Amino acid sequence: MDSHDPVLTTEPRPGVLLITLNRPHVRNAVDRTLALAMDAALTRLETDSSLNVGILTGAGGHFCSGMDLKAFPAEGVPVVADRGLAGLTRARLRKPLIAAVEGAAVAGGFELALACDLVTAADTAFFALPEVARGLIAAEGGAIRLPGRLPYHVAMEMLLTASPLSAPDAARHGLVNQLTPVGQALQAALALADRVQAHSRDAIRITKQIVQDTRGLDDHTAYAVQDPLSTPVFATTAASEGARAFIEKRRPAWHA
């Protein structure tokens, strides 16, 4: 990698923003510069009305090796404001984000993937949270999210022993949506993004918000949170169009 290459690239596709971590010489480890660049890319995704879905991937055959430990003594943990590691792990994005994982997704890199809504992964990829082996804590979502995504004892083995989890095993436990041959995770993510954005933008956005706002609540409380968000959707032109399209046996024209 040339020293003048950007640490992150963005590529708009139809309705999709492809975000690529671009520090392959360190397996795309996150330093302060990369964190700020990624935060800016996520802000673009959220504010650009032509974009419906984001895809996060890494250059050079790896997803992300987490925080750049060489930069850590001088820079600290590369969090951005209240949005967490690289502006993602504590953010509340309105639009879906898909992780396309090749190679290593470890430490903070795995936490970035856990902060995404969908995950595609090559069958040679692997995930790990080795923080305890470095005297650290998986404090950007690893310890919080992983026990809810994997069987409890599998998650605790990863957290307490720093053991890696292969992508095929992750898929078997439901942590990966689509498993692909090596080099094909991004193509699978692009296809998944097209499937997502084939549907109503507002319905997708509100569905994600409901999931975020009701996680961990009992049913009674969850309905009280959900209903003010969901009820107005049933009166939208998109809802009427969806019904008409079903009756007329055609694809909905959501954005006509």
Rank of each mutant, 00 (worst) to 15 (best):
M158Y: 04
E157F: 06
D5T: 13
Q187N: 12
R244I: 03
M158Q: 07
M156V: 06
G84T: 00
D219H: 03
P228L: 00
G76M: 04
N52L: 00
I206W: 07
H255A: 09
L93S: 09
N52K: 12
L93I: 04
V101I: 15
G54K: 11
L88G: 07
H220A: 14
A185C: 02
T124E: 14
A193T: 03
I206C: 08
A193K: 03
W254K: 03
A128G: 03
A189D: 02
V211M: 08
I206N: 05
P6A: 06
P78K: 06
R201V: 04
D202C: 05
S230Y: 02
A170N: 09
G87L: 13
C64R: 05
A37D: 14
H220I: 08
A256F: 08
S230Q: 10
G242P: 09
A81E: 15
T124N: 12
N52T: 02
Q209M: 13
A171G: 06
L97H: 09
R195G: 11
S230L: 13
M67E: 05
V225H: 00
V30Q: 11
P130T: 11
A59H: 01
D227S: 11
H25F: 05
D68F: 07
F110Y: 11
R94P: 00
Q184Y: 07
G103E: 10
E46T: 10
R172N: 00
N52F: 00
R90G: 11
V182K: 07
S166Y: 11
G84W: 05
R195C: 12
M1T: 12
D2N: 13
G15D: 07
D2G: 14
A100F: 03
A115S: 15
A203V: 02
L150G: 02
A203W: 13
V119F: 01
A115R: 15
P78C: 14
L36C: 03
V77Y: 13
D202Y: 05
D5K: 08
A91H: 07
G148K: 04
T231Q: 11
A37M: 06
R134H: 13
V26K: 09
I55L: 09
Q184L: 08
D218W: 01
V16F: 04
R44W: 05
L17P: 11
I247L: 13
D202M: 12
A113Q: 09
F127D: 00
R13M: 13
G54A: 11
G87N: 09
M1P: 11
K70D: 15
V106M: 12
R92S: 12
R44S: 14
D48P: 13
G216R: 06
T120M: 09
R90T: 09
V53T: 10
S163A: 15
G142V: 08
A245L: 12
V53Q: 01
T214V: 09
H62M: 02
L36S: 07
L186R: 03
G84R: 02
L160T: 10
E157M: 09
V176M: 06
T20L: 06
L136W: 13
S163T: 14
